[in-house]
Design a protein around this nucleic acid. Structure first.
Lengths: 300, 300
DNA sequence: TAAAAATACTCCATAGGTATTTTAT
DNA sequence: ATAAAATACCTATGGAGTATTTTTA
């Protein structure tokens, strides 16, 4: 007994005829007969009374008809729901963002995207890079944008945009007038660092490592859980740090903070569109990812 | 795409494994693979992400899973509804009764039946014999009890019980003391008759016809639409009639009416359990019909 | 007689199996 | 090395057809 037979049964009930039903569903009359007989054997009772001029459902047939209609209706709903799912861009999407993208540019992009696709709502979950990646691995997020690469082979990452990291000092700092600063000088200065798991920290550690400067050779005076917190620390003279120019663009413009070059180091890092290598991505997430790749340049 | 495949899909989603799902539904793992692939082709998108240690539904798969569960649930409901329909005796039954059975004994039998089957409710539609038969032919009634046979070949009738018809006169009538009355005397006496379509009238006409007495040779003074009305007519001296002793049992007992034999005529008529010859009968109607046949003797 | 369903048969598409290979941990 | 899914290939059930018979109005 399957949905197809139930559909045939419905047609027979509605048209009160085996042969007319056959016409409608493009089957021969004997095939209809055999399907109805199948159903009658399955349910163990007569479903259709074959009168000479009409095929009329029995009481059991009427009962079955009600269910059969509901089943075929639900099946149709299912088909349209699944084709809508692939065709229309609508519904809810949850994306992840590490600190810098999550705070400094994803909100603007999400705004533009949702005005272009008004039937879409997007939630942005902000954590540090490791957090976003763990959520992706657990299947709780489809895509995310993070500030460093991971070596986990279940994660695929595509470079989205670049960012420069520079030494950031308060406007009142003694180095403000210098063109550039030596790495050795940096090591003696009080330094604020992001927490473990932060992409900013990872990029910085990696880059300094390349230049032979280990993390513990810095004079680390504080570890803070967000770019904002580090900013506040710098402004209040707690220490200095190496930060994304995107994140501190406002403070640099207003002159509250100053950026200084580190001698011999060009601190470029990238943000990565990140997803699971083995899980498939919904059309909605795919659309948003394409949007990110194609339109991000407009948001610097 | 059929319910069976959707059921397999549900098991895969629930068990997060093709092979475990195969165990449950008693199919091999390759068969599960091919069913899932079929579904994916049908819907045109991936439904299950095959990770190394688990099979996880995609977003589309999650959407499908919701529908698939509802569909399989509804299908199960359908199966139980149809087997209940055959097994349990419950629900509503509409039966037909012509005047005498409908008024004088069906109500009592229905009462006993519904106390024996408390989940059953019965409606009794009372019309004259022709009315009941027309309703059966139209499929509006499954069974009925009527007071005469029909020659319509779509109607099957089984004799249920017998009834005697006797000449009924008021207690004050001049013939009250007579043992029996001649047919010729009857023709001159004012006579009340039931309407066309009445089984009582049909039986009477047929029986008198056998004895050579045509309807128009009677002195018909009134035609009435119910046994009760004829009774009232007799009591009020309008005329006399030939009536079922079952119908007038009370009045005969109380002495308000008297029954007289017609010379040379034994007026036995029967009531018939009546149904359509080509339509099937629901288990509930069948149960009631059996009850009627087996238990009617207890109700005279 | 005509119209509808049932029956008898033939055919082939596919659901199902087993054996094996591929993939990922 | 192991566990799971994919692939390849084979088989047989049963869904579909056509031709014919039966039934009944």
């Amino acid at each position: 007994m399957d949905l197809w037979q139930l559909n045939i049964f419905c047609k027979v009930v509605e048209l009160r005829s085996f042969s007319k039903a056959g016409k409608i569903v493009h089957l021969s009359q004997p095939t209809i007969s055999s399907h109805i007989k199948d159903l009658e054997n399955h349910f163990g009772c007569r479903l259709i009374d074959r009168l000479a001029r009409a095929a009329i459902p029995t009481k059991a047939g009427e009962l079955l008809y009600g269910y059969a209609r509901r089943l075929t209706k639900l099946k149709n709903d299912m088909e349209t729901a699944l084709s809508d799912f692939q065709g229309l861009i609508k519904g809810h999407l949850l994306i992840g963002g590490s600190t810098i993208p999550g705070v400094y540019f994803l909100p603007r992009i999400i705004g533009v995207f949702t005005t272009r696709f008004p039937e879409v709502s997007i939630s942005l979950k902000i954590s540090d890079t490791d957090g976003v990646i763990n959520h992706i691995l657990a299947g709780e997020l489809e895509i995310g944008v993070v500030g460093s690469k991971t070596k986990d082979k279940h994660i695929l990452q595509h470079r989205l945009m670049e960012d420069e990291m520079r030494l950031i000092v308060p406007a009142t700092h003694k180095w403000v007038e210098k063109k550039q600063v030596d790495l050795k000088m940096l090591c003696s200065e009080p330094f604020i660092i992001r927490e473990k798991g932060s992409g900013t920290r990872k990029s910085m550690v990696q880059k300094l490592g390349q230049k032979g400067v280990a993390l513990n050779s810095l004079n680390i005076i504080a570890e803070m859980g967000s770019t904002e917190a580090v900013c506040q620390g710098i402004k209040n003279g707690v220490g200095i740090s190496i930060l994304s120019v995107i994140a501190v663009a406002e403070e640099l413009n207003s002159g509250k903070l100053k950026a200084i070059d580190l001698k011999g180091i060009k601190f470029i890092r990238h943000f990565y569109l990140t997803h699971h290598s083995r899980r498939s991505i919904s059309p909605l997430a795919m659309t948003f990812a394409d949007f990110l790749r194609n339109e991000l340049h407009a948001f610097t």
